[in-house]
């Protein structure tokens, strides 16, 4: 059996990659992809740990629900990005800074 810790390291790596994408990329869509990475990292954790939770299937259940939520979240975010593009003609997060101190 593959030890749980391997899965966890994989998910940690994915999480960090996602975090990097969120913090650095100049394209909002790529930012969303980074967020997806982070979610998927968590999913891996869930599924991997769910192997030992046969009674309640907590991990698998959570994974399914999370995929749905992630999809909804991305859909809404994309719609909002379209809206922003209408006004700013750009999807560079740095350009979206009219609201500031």
């Amino acid at each position: 059996m593959i030890p749980l810790s391997n899965f966890m390291m994989l998910s940690a790596a994915l999480f960090v990659i996602g975090l990097y994408a969120v913090l650095v990329k100049r394209n909002v869509i790529q930012l969303l992809i980074g967020i997806e990475f982070m979610i998927n990292a968590a999913l891996i954790n869930f599924v991997a740990a769910g192997k030992s939770d046969k009674n309640y299937m907590g991990g698998q259940m959570t994974a399914l629900f999370t995929i749905v939520i992630a999809a909804a979240s991305v859909a809404v975010a994309l719609a909002i990005i379209l809206n922003v593009y209408k006004y700013y003609k750009s999807i560079d997060p740095d350009k979206l800074n009219k609201l500031r101190d």
Partner: peptide, 9 residues
């Protein structure tokens, strides 16, 4: 307030 630069990243 200087932290609020307006840039999300």
């Amino acid at each position: 307030r200087s932290f609020q630069s307006g840039r999300i990243q």
